[in-house]
């Protein structure tokens, strides 16, 4: 006989079902289907008015709560099939959405016309370009800037971390000062300084270059801390073994420490790149027409904010997969030794 204390309620349920045909009343098919039928009838009898009174709100709320209770009972039963449970979840979500749509005092027509006006987005403006064209041109710039600043920040950050590992007191003062400075400095200030102030010292940079430089400098401070943590995470015995073999510090770093540290730092680096990519929006303040600025311009020209919604969608569609890709990379690093 199984130890009563350790079996879950559901296996007790199974025991009951098998041995004695006894099922709790709320799990019996008769109850489940009966209640479902009643809920459907209830749904059909819901008030048909636009603006429900308080009593009617209570009725609607009660309906939703009962639906939740029913699906809670249904989903918590291990015996019910998976496909039915999946359908239940989607039905509940749909129900919540539909109730909101039906009874919330929203002017859906108007909302759609103002914020989701896709016809306007596809309508050609002067010069034959559509709003979508402008947005995608902005996206291209965003991605280019993100890409180059990722590369440069990685190179600088790696060099800083390696130099820091030499534990030279004087060098460390400069490195730590650099890191503190660029972590404290708001990116927008840095960008404006590089683009507008630097020319007074004779260094004039194009807007994209200035943008990439500012983003690289800022990101490199974070990247160097990530690499430093990765390097420090490598067991000290590795360094000892390498040095005992006669390898000098540079060889030790290059052949033993960095290859191992590289695997460790991929996840935090990847999330750093994605966060940094969103900072490209700051470039809009130095005349770069990246994605966000393009969207704002279209909004200004067409007096309609749909472009911003579209830009948001583009950000999500582009960056969520990148984050997932970073996760996949992390798993591949673990398996493929």
């Amino acid at each position: 006989m199984s130890n009563q204390k350790f079996t879950s309620r559901n296996s007790q349920l199974e025991e009951l079902r098998k041995t004695q045909g006894i099922i709790p009343w709320h799990r019996r098919h008769e109850f489940v289907f009966g209640a479902l039928f009643l809920l459907v009838v209830y749904a059909l009898l819901l008030p048909q008015v636009e603006f429900p009174s308080t009593g009617q709100w209570l009725a609607i709320g009660l309906f939703f709560l009962l639906s939740l209770a029913w699906s809670g009972l249904f989903l918590s039963d291990e015996q019910k099939p998976e496909w039915a449970k999946t359908i239940t979840v989607f039905v509940i979500l749909f129900l919540a959405g539909w109730l909101f749509y039906r009874y919330a005092d929203a002017d859906w027509e108007r909302l759609s016309h103002v914020f989701f006006n896709w016809e306007l987005m596809s309508e050609p403006m002067e010069g034959g370009t559509t709003a979508w064209d402008i947005l995608f041109a902005g996206l291209k710039l965003t991605l280019q800037i993100a890409f180059f600043s990722a590369i440069f920040s990685t190179i600088i950050g790696l060099l800083l971390a390696v130099f820091r590992s030499f534990e030279n007191k004087v060098l460390n003062i400069f490195i730590i000062a650099y890191i503190d400075f660029f972590r404290a400095m708001p990116i927008i200030v840095l960008m404006v300084l590089i683009y507008y102030a630097l020319p007074y010292t004779g260094i004039t940079l194009d807007a994209p270059v200035a943008g990439i430089l500012a983003l690289s400098l800022n990101s490199s401070a974070y990247v160097s801390e990530i690499f430093r943590a990765g390097i420090l995470s490598i067991h000290h015995g590795q360094i000892e073994a390498a040095r005992a073999l006669g390898m000098n510090p540079v060889q030790t770093m290059r052949l033993v420490i960095l290859p191992q540290a590289f695997r460790v730092v991929i996840p935090p680096l990847a999330s750093n790149y994605v966060a940094s990519a969103k900072d490209t929006a700051i470039c809009s303040s130095i005349t770069i027409l990246e994605l966000l600025k393009s969207a704002l311009q279209v909004q200004a020209w067409r007096a309609n904010p749909t472009a911003i919604i579209a830009a948001t969608g583009i950000y999500i569609v582009v960056f969520v997969p990148l984050t997932r890709l970073a996760g996949v990379l992390e798993n591949r690093m673990k398996v493929n030794r």
């Binding site: 590795q238 073994a241 191992q260």
Partner: peptide, 10 residues
């Protein structure tokens, strides 16, 4: 040549 207690293989 040195051999360590914790091996320290790469």
């Amino acid at each position: 040549g040195m051999v360590f207690q914790l091996f320290n293989l790469f």
